[in-house]
C-alpha cells in the first residue's frame, strides 16, 4: 500500500473556524494554508490506511505490542 494521494486542502475558512472554536486567534493566511494541507493529509491517510473494523478498539495497541514481543534476543 502506497502513501496517501495528495488530497485537496481543507478549505481555509474551515480551518479558521475550527481554530476560533478552540479559542485560538487565527494565524496568518499562509499558516492557515499550511494547516489546511496538513489536515487534508490526515483525512487522506485514514482512507489510504484502510477503514477500521467496527470492533477495533482505539486502545488495543499496547496489548498488541506485548503479544508480538520478542523477549531477550
Amino acid at each position: 500500500m502506497n502513501g496517501p494521494e495528495t488530497p485537496p486542502p481543507v478549505p481555509p475558512a474551515t480551518v479558521e473556524a475550527l481554530l476560533r472554536l478552540a479559542g485560538l486567534p487565527p494565524p496568518d493566511p499562509e499558516t492557515i494554508a499550511r494547516i489546511a494541507v496538513g489536515a487534508a493529509n490526515a483525512l487522506a491517510a485514514i482512507g489510504a490506511g484502510g477503514q477500521p473494523g467496527f470492533d477495533d478498539a482505539p486502545d488495543g495497541f499496547v496489548a498488541e505490542l506485548a503479544r508480538l514481543a520478542v523477549d531477550g534476543d
Binding site: 481554530l19 490526515a42 485514514i46 477500521p52 498488541e64
Partner: peptide, 23 residues
C-alpha cells in the same frame, strides 16, 4: 494547530488502525 483541524473520528481511526498495521 493542524491538530485542531483533524476530526475526532479521524484521530480515533488512526488509533484503531495501529494494531492492524503493527501486526
Amino acid at each position: 494547530e493542524t491538530g485542531f483541524a483533524i476530526p475526532a473520528p479521524t484521530y480515533l481511526a488512526a488509533a484503531q488502525l495501529r494494531p492492524r498495521h503493527l501486526r
